[in-house]
Structure formats: structure tokens, C-alpha cells
């Protein structure tokens, strides 16, 4: 049985391409294509679908406005040409974020996430001096010594480096098993930090380059053990 989906996209060539990808997958049945939020809402509030392919910027209301007004919540895959929306995407718990134009392979990866728990396939490498993260449709190398800390954002995590932030579909729990444990330590259910980057610790918080990070009671003793306190 196929998943049902709807495409909400104002650019015809992008909608056609997406429909073609759906057809090629053999997994999806496209129930409709709408070029604006109002028409899409009208359909979606009368018909339930499994998956919503959703552009963000369209005439009138945005894709996020549609999600705010929807009476139920299908799996959502955002399709946009602006990577800046990745920061909003996590708030709406979207399954994936496809930057237009995307390859069919990237489309398949998005479909895989519909059935794969968050983060299961999103990180490669473990106890080396670097990791690769999937971000914005590509694998990005981050050296351990560039990473200041990793912060949970629901089904996403934010890797904060000295000059950049990267958001990827993953969880702190999953990362805890995969990052180099000599360099990184979990200090809170929402934070893994680079132990070499701590500037100071005060009570139940630590500071890394001006970022205040909570340290939970459960992890505080482990953190202190790892510091070279003289």
C-alpha cells in the first residue's frame, strides 16, 4: 500500500519534478498539487494524507502558517531554496528539509527518514579526530577540535563550532554513543560538550566561548572527574 501525499509548491517545474520523484519511488501516491496555502488547507482539512511536501515561501501565507492551521499533523518534508529555514524546521518537527533542486538520491534519503528513527543514519565515524554530519544534503566534515558543543533541538541537534552552527536530524542520545568520548562528554540531557573547550564552571553551569551550558546533577561528578583540577 502506498503512502498518500500532497505537494504544496508554487513553482510549477519544482512541483512536476517532485511528482516525478514520488512516482519513481513507487511508494507514494500524489493526491494533489496546490500552489498556495489556502487551497492546500481547504483540501487537507477535508482529506487526510500521510505526507506533506511543503514549500515555505508562497504567495500569501507561508508553509509554516499552513502547519499552524492544520487540524492534524502528517509527516512533513519541507522543500525550499532557502537553507535559513532549517532553523525553523525543527520547531515544527519536520521529517526532512530538501533544498531545491535536489537529486533523486537525496529525495530517497528523505523518504528513508519517514521510517527511520531520528538520527539512526545521520552520522558517520566514531572515535576519530573528526566526524561527518549530514547537513543540507551533503556530508560536512567537522574536526573534533572545531566543535564547541552539541545542543538538542527536539528531533534535531545543533553542532556549534567557533564560527558556525550546523543543524542535523539526530538526537543527543544517539550521538553520545558515536562521538569520541575522550573529547566529548554529556553534561545534560540536551548537551554534549567538548571537554577541551570549557572556559569556566560555576555552580551548575559551564561556559564555553560565552555560551552558558547547564550541567545536570547526574552528570556533574563525571564532568569534574574529567577536568585537570590541581
Amino acid at each position: 500500500m502506498k503512502w498518500t501525499c500532497v505537494i504544496v509548491e508554487d513553482l510549477q517545474v519544482a512541483a512536476d519534478y517532485l511528482a516525478k520523484c514520488c512516482e519513481k519511488s513507487g511508494l507514494l501516491q500524489v493526491k494533489g498539487h496546490f500552489t498556495n496555502v489556502e487551497e492546500a488547507l481547504d483540501y487537507l482539512n477535508k482529506n487526510s494524507v500521510d505526507i506533506l511536501f511543503l514549500d515555505v515561501e508562497m504567495p500569501g501565507a507561508t508553509g509554516f502558517d499552513l502547519l499552524d492551521q492544520l487540524a492534524y499533523y502528517p509527516k512533513v518534508i519541507l522543500t525550499t531554496s532557502k537553507s535559513e529555514y532549517a532553523y525553523n524546521a525543527f520547531e515544527y518537527n519536520v521529517t526532512d528539509f530538501l533544498k531545491k533542486p535536489f537529486t533523486y538520491q537525496r529525495f530517497q534519503e528523505a523518504l528513508n527518514k519517514l521510517t527511520t528513527p531520528a538520527g539512526e543514519n545521520n552520522i558517520s565515524s566514531t572515535a576519530s579526530d573528526h566526524i561527518f554530519i549530514k547537513c543540507d544534503g551533503k556530508l560536512v566534515r567537522l574536526n573534533n577540535d572545531e566543535i564547541l558543543f552539541i545542543e538538542s533541538m527536539g528531533d534535531y541537534v545543533k553542532f556549534v563550532t567557533t564560527d558556525k552552527k550546523f543543524i542535523t536530524h539526530n538526537t543527543i542520545k544517539n550521538l553520545e554513543e558515536k562521538v569520541n568520548r575522550q573529547t566529548f562528554i554529556k553534561v545534560h540531557r540536551s548537551y554534549i560538550i567538548n571537554i577541551n573547550k570549557i572556559d569556566d564552571i560555576r555552580e551548575n553551569d559551564l561556559f564555553i566561548k560565552g555560551n552558558e551550558i547547564p550541567v545536570s546533577k547526574a552528570h556533574k561528578a563525571d564532568v569534574l572527574k574529567r577536568l585537570n583540577i590541581i
Binding site: L11, V13, A14, Y17, E57, P59, S81, K100, P101
Partner: peptide, 24 residues
Amino acid sequence: KKAIHKIKPTFGFVGLPLVQHICK
């Protein structure tokens, strides 16, 4: 801004990623 945003990815779809970047 909206109009240029809309047309922008068109150029990627036809093999003109540089024009898409110029639109950005």
C-alpha cells in the same frame, strides 16, 4: 524579494546553478 525568491530555483532545475546563486 518574493518574486526573485520564486524564480530562483528554476535556474537550478535547468542546469544554471550560477544564475540561481546570482538570484540568491
